[in-house]
């Protein structure tokens, strides 16, 4: 009888051992990022491309709602649809026909607008090689602990994405820019979404690690728009982004949805194009990665319990320049029209 017990315990231990060995340890599945950034780009201008602005603002709305602060969202919109003279509802941008959600909202902070949205500025933003006088709000100030969400929308072809109406970024240039980011340790992980025609061609050349990429269509396929609003008169949103938004609207900062659910958000029956996914560069299993790793924001909070008990009130030695006595400046009004500068010919 006791022998039976010993055997039982032994097999029990062995099974525990085996199941432990197979399971990937939790800490390798957990992300160790310390901050979240989002780069959202709409590359096309003109009124008939209204849907691209609606696309990018829909994503903007979601990431902001899920907690990424405006200072960590870089929004590039190449045309101002809200102020377009053709817009029958000025100062609004809607992403569905019933005009339920005004994605322009009341608090949209556009970082690059109009002709500032160029390939050069985009690559400079990613690589950090911006001119020295660029304000901090227009810089991607990421570090080795940053998870970045990159969303691009516009008109694309096999191996390129058109910017404005004049130039394009090739997949090779984009891959090189990401490699330069990786070499400078400017990211921890990147989630790359692109909603264009032949979108998957843009991520095929990536060679830097820790990138999960998804695209609205495969090479040779078009990415289609979802529906027209007859009041506005143009297509309102693209199919892929429409279903993405539908999914994201049900995500909350502490919901448990995973990236694999996100990647399956638009089946071919809904999108009419095949959603492409590239996961060979990504080390973690997308079905274990919570969606908030990219769409939400982490901010660690440490409660301070040890204030310094300052005994005597410090007095800073004031720099000498402050003690200078000020000579009151004489001020007077100038004549309204500088007639004294004009030589009278009379």
């Amino acid at each position: 009888m006791s022998l039976y017990y010993v055997y039982f315990i032994f097999t029990f231990l062995v099974t525990i051992k085996i199941s432990n060995a197979i399971e990937i340890p939790e800490k390798f599945q957990k992300s160790n990022h310390t901050n979240n950034w989002a780069v959202l780009v709409d590359t096309s201008r003109f009124w008939f491309n209204y849907r691209h602005v609606a696309n990018v603002l829909s994503i903007y709305r979601s990431v902001k709602r899920l907690g990424i602060p405006d200072s960590q969202i870089i929004l590039m919109i190449s045309d101002d649809m809200a102020c377009n003279p053709r817009n029958p509802r000025p100062a609004t941008i809607f992403n569905n026909a019933h005009e339920q959600i005004n994605v322009y909202g009341d608090d949209v902070e556009v970082d690059y607008r109009g002709y500032e949205v160029s390939v050069e500025n985009f690559v400079r933003l990613l690589t950090g090689r911006v001119p020295p006088d660029t304000p901090r709000s227009k810089r991607l100030l990421t570090d080795e602990g940053s998870n970045i969400l990159i969303y691009l929308t516009g008109h694309g072809g096999d191996g390129f994405l058109k910017f404005q109406d004049s130039e394009e970024i090739t997949s090779q240039e984009l891959a090189d820019a990401l490699e330069q980011m990786w070499q400078k340790r400017r990211y921890n992980e990147i989630f790359f979404i692109i909603d264009t025609c032949q979108a998957s061609s843009m991520y095929e050349k990536f060679y830097s690690p820790n990138i999960l990429a998804t695209a609205s269509s495969l090479v040779g396929e078009d990415s289609l728009s979802h529906h027209v609003d007859s009041a506005i008169g143009v297509y309102i949103i693209d199919r892929y982004t429409y279903y993405v938004l539908e999914f994201l609207e049900n995500v909350h900062p502490n919901s448990k949805k995973t990236m694999s659910e996100f990647l399956a958000v638009c089946p071919k029956s809904a999108c009419l194009s095949t959603v492409g996914v590239r996961r060979d560069l990504f080390k973690r299993d997308p079905s274990k990665v919570p969606i908030t790793d990219f769409f939400g924001s982490v901010r660690q909070i440490i409660i301070t319990t040890d204030p310094i008990d300052i005994q005597e009130i410090p007095k800073r030695k004031k720099p000498m320049s402050i003690n200078k006595t000020k000579v009151p400046e004489k001020r007077e009004y100038l004549p309204q029209f500088p007639m004294h500068l004009v030589k009278t010919t009379v």
Binding site: P69, D70, P135, R136, S297, R299, I301
Partner: peptide
């Protein structure tokens, strides 16, 4: 609420305008 504190930082950042400096 413990999960509200990170959002306070976001709210402060909006108004503090500290990113104007380089």
């Amino acid at each position: 609420g413990a999960e509200r504190l990170p959002l306070l930082l976001t709210r402060l950042e909006e108004r503090a305008a500290t990113h104007v400096s380089e």
